[in-house]
Amino acid sequence: MLQANRNILYSCPFIPAPWIEAYGFCAERIEPSLHYNQPCTPRQGMCAHARLFLNHCCRLDPAAVIFSSTCDQMRRAFDLFSFYSKVPSFLFNVPATWQNLTAQKLYRLELLRLGRFMQSIGGIEPSISALAGAFGTDNQVILGSRTCDTSSKLVAVIGEHRLAQSSDLFNLIEQLGGRVVLDALGTSGCTSPAKIEMRSFYKDPLEEITSAYFGTIPSIFRRPNIMFYSWLRNAFVQNRPHGLLIQNFTWCDIWKAEIDVIKKQINIPVLEITIADTNEYLQPSIINRIEAFMETLK
């Protein structure tokens, strides 16, 4: 059945947007808004981001929603969504391990399965040239670094997900005399795929896509997560921030468990801010913490 709405919603960086586009859909990476907060989804114990994503998707009328298994909370958010919603949904099984062939094979199989899913909701299997067209134009690596102004307090911001309100955080930092030299929230930095090499792509598109996304994105959920720390060290050498701000969400175990490790790995002040799924992104207590943090960078 052809879906009137061609938008497919997703959040995970391991889902290649050009893959969705090549099947004739519009890939819409959701930055959930706090304004779509709903009381009907479980609150106690549910990751604020997973809950916000779920609520956001429930408010829209997409062709489909793609969840991913990069954390238990999103994996189970898919269970909730598919249980209560009639909107077609798909859970992309992103392997947590990556140093073995099994994991790479699983990722490839999941790409193919996603393709079949999109065909089942009206998508059309693309030719290799159409696929190349999609990846050749859309796969632009977004650089996380911003222009460096040495007179400012240089701040790095990292975290897995960006919210619709995230610009408030950057504005606040700038109001307090800071400059964000590393913006690695969600859509950039540690969640960026590598650039697709078209010569390799034509030989084996799936191999190249797997390599660019699964083989490259150094997300913190991976086991082991050494790629993330390698990325972090390189990013710090390049950008030389004076302070690091980590945006986390309530009940997100994956990031919370690493905060202490990150603090030990780097030699600059670190501030963790925890975003709850309230209606206010930067609550007064968080603003106070950021103000104090910026003071310490003097």
Partner: peptide, 13 residues
């Protein structure tokens, strides 16, 4: 790792 609870995965890491 993979389809396991986040608590355990994070603590094992």
């Amino acid at each position: 790792a993979g389809a396991v609870c986040d608590d355990f995965s994070a603590i094992a890491q």
